[in-house]
């Protein structure tokens, strides 16, 4: 077989699949978003910007998302960085792989069941009753923005740790030694050596977490109890309950647009940070 013929044959099934199940559906969303709603809730073809002009009706959802997604990303970053540093620099090399696997693996297990765990921990019979026994009153934790933040950090921490680990692992440990040999205090070494050299990992991790948070539905649904809702929750409502598909399509298209802008800014920043681009590590 000629190499080019083989290439096309090998690529054909994947291409067909991507075209039918990714490209076509995304195009349909875009088309729907310019349509109008029929009497029975269906789609009537049109070319109007009405749905986009109406986005303000779901402003609260966008607002919540645009506040809690960056905040959640930042919290993940602050918690993840020292752990990544520990794994890359301080951990015993014999245990490093296992420790790393133990961080990554929870991310791939069911987020639904892992969020459910926090209902039990933060719910009335969990932590609040423990705190009450200590005589400090019974705080309400479940169905608050706090609970959603805990769920976010719990769900997405692994995704932040890994890219930072990859960046720090490449760091030449002699630089750290040189810095301390020359008498700089640890904090200064952190500010001037390890932090700047880990920036590519920080940027990758932050982008991954931020993007996934933008589309989050389950965590606010389960731990926010309908009081803390994201764009994802608005989308479920628009598609499965109020069945306003054209408007829902406009919300979804806007969400994707915001994400594309984020990714573009990220790629630009990365280009400026380093000449070459690290492969985005999802694993």
């Amino acid at each position: 077989m000629r190499p080019s013929l083989r290439t096309s044959l090998f690529l054909a099934p994947a291409t067909a699949w991507l075209l039918c199940m990714l490209v076509l559906p995304l195009v349909v969303v875009l088309v729907f978003s310019f349509g109008t709603r029929g009497a029975a809730g269906g789609y009537v073809p049109a070319l109007s910007l009405e749905n986009y002009a109406n986005l303000g009706a779901r402003w609260a959802a966008f607002q919540n998302t645009l506040v809690l997604a960056p905040l959640g990303t930042l919290t993940c970053l602050i918690i993840a960085w020292p752990l990544a540093y520990f794994l890359a620099i301080k951990a015993d090399p014999r245990w490093r792989t296992l420790l790393l696997i133990l961080v990554i693996v929870p991310f791939w297990t069911s987020i639904l069941i892992r969020s459910y765990a926090w209902i039990q921990i933060l719910g009335g019979n969990g932590l609040p009753s423990l705190i009450a026994e200590l005589g400090m009153g019974k705080p309400r934790l479940i169905n608050t923005p706090f609970a959603v933040m805990v769920g976010i950090v719990y769900g997405y921490l692994p995704l932040m740790v890994f890219p930072i680990y990859v960046a720090l692992e490449k760091l030449d440990k002699k630089l750290l030694e040189a810095s301390s040999d020359l008498g700089s205090p640890p904090f200064r070494t952190f500010l001037q050596v390890s932090l700047p050299l880990s920036l590519s990992g920080v940027a990758t991790g932050s982008m991954l977490v931020f993007i996934l948070l933008m589309g989050e539905f389950l965590i606010p649904q389960i731990l926010g109890g309908g009081k803390v809702f994201f764009v994802g929750n608005a989308l479920v409502d628009l598609f499965l309950q109020s069945r306003n598909w054209p408007f829902g399509a406009a919300v979804a298209a806007t969400l994707v647009l915001v994400m594309l802008v984020t990714v573009t800014l990220y790629l630009r920043a990365m280009k400026r940070l380093s000449g070459g681009r690290d492969d985005v590590a999802l694993m």
Binding site: P25, L26, V29, M214, M259
Partner: peptide, 18 residues
């Protein structure tokens, strides 16, 4: 795009397209 677009958008898009 396939890896990065959130699952919820994939779900919605597939639903209305199909």
């Amino acid at each position: 795009v396939a890896v990065m677009v959130p699952g919820i958008v994939i779900g919605i898009a597939t639903l209305i397209a199909l």
